[in-house]
Simulated assay, not measured.
Amino acid sequence: MTSLLQRVKSKMAIFAHRKARGMLDGEYGSVFRGRSLDFDDLRVYIPGDEVRDIDWKASARYGSPLIKRYVAVRRQTVLLIADTGRNMAAQSRDGEIKKDIAVMALGVIGYLAHRHGDVVGLVCGDGDGTRSIPAKAGEAHLERLLRTVDAGTSLDAAPSRIEEQLEHVARTVKGRFLLFVVADELAADPAMEQLLRRLRAQHEILWLTIRDAELAGAGPAALDAINVADSSLLMRHLADSPAVAAAYAGAALDRDAGRHGMFRRAGISEGHVASSHGVMTELFALLERHRRAG
Score class of each variant (00 low, 15 high):
Ile210Val: 13
Ala221Cys: 00
Ala201Phe: 13
Val120Asp: 12
His203Met: 12
Ala213Trp: 03
Arg197Asp: 08
Ala137Gly: 14
Arg211Gly: 01
Leu223Trp: 05
Asp240Gly: 14
Gly127Thr: 06
Asp184Met: 08
Gln194Ile: 03
Leu215Glu: 06
Val119Glu: 13
Ile133Phe: 13
Gly129Leu: 12
Ala213Cys: 02
His237Glu: 10
Leu234Ile: 03
Leu179Lys: 04
Val228Arg: 08
His116Ala: 11
Leu234Thr: 07
Gly219Cys: 01
Ile109Tyr: 06
Val169Glu: 00
Thr153Ala: 05
Asp189Ile: 02
Arg236Phe: 01
Asn227Gln: 07
Ser160Asp: 01
Asp118Arg: 07
Leu122Arg: 09
Glu167Met: 12
Gly121Asp: 05
Ala158Pro: 01
Arg131Gln: 15
Leu146Gln: 05
Ala225Lys: 07
Gly152Arg: 02
Ala225Gln: 10
Pro134Asp: 13
Ala251Phe: 12
Ile133Arg: 09
His203Leu: 03
Tyr248Pro: 07
Leu146Val: 11
Gly129Cys: 10
Thr209Pro: 00
Thr172Glu: 10
Ala187Tyr: 05
Ala137Trp: 13
Val228Ser: 06
Ala239Gln: 13
Val244Lys: 14
Ala187Gln: 13
Pro159Val: 04
Asp230Gln: 00
Leu223Ser: 08
Val169Asn: 09
Arg255Ser: 14
Leu142Asn: 05
Leu122Pro: 06
Ala158Gln: 00
Gly217Gln: 04
Leu145Ser: 04
Asp212Leu: 01
Val244Tyr: 15
Tyr111Leu: 07
Thr153Gly: 11
Ser232Asn: 02
Leu195Ile: 11
Arg131Ser: 12
Arg171Lys: 13
Met235Val: 15
Asp212Cys: 08
Leu178Glu: 11
Gly219Ala: 00
Ala183Leu: 05
Gly152Asn: 02
Gly138Asp: 08
Val228Phe: 12
Arg161Phe: 04
Gly125Ser: 04
Leu112Val: 06
Gln202Trp: 04
His116Met: 06
Ser232Lys: 13
Ser231Trp: 14
Ala243Arg: 15
Ala243Asp: 14
Ile226Ser: 01
Leu234Val: 09
Asp156Lys: 15
Glu185Ile: 03
Ala221Gln: 07
Ala183Trp: 09
Thr172Asp: 13
Ala187Trp: 02
Ala191Asp: 15
Pro159Cys: 00
Ala187Asn: 08
Ala183Gln: 03
Arg200Asp: 08
Val244Ile: 15
Ala113Cys: 01
Ala137Met: 10
Cys124Trp: 04
Asp212His: 09
Val120Cys: 11
Arg144Trp: 11
Ala187Thr: 14
Ala222Gly: 07
Ile109Ala: 11
Pro159Ser: 01
Gln165Glu: 10
Val119Lys: 14
Thr209Asp: 04
Gly217Cys: 03
Ala243Asn: 12
Leu234His: 06
Glu204Ile: 15
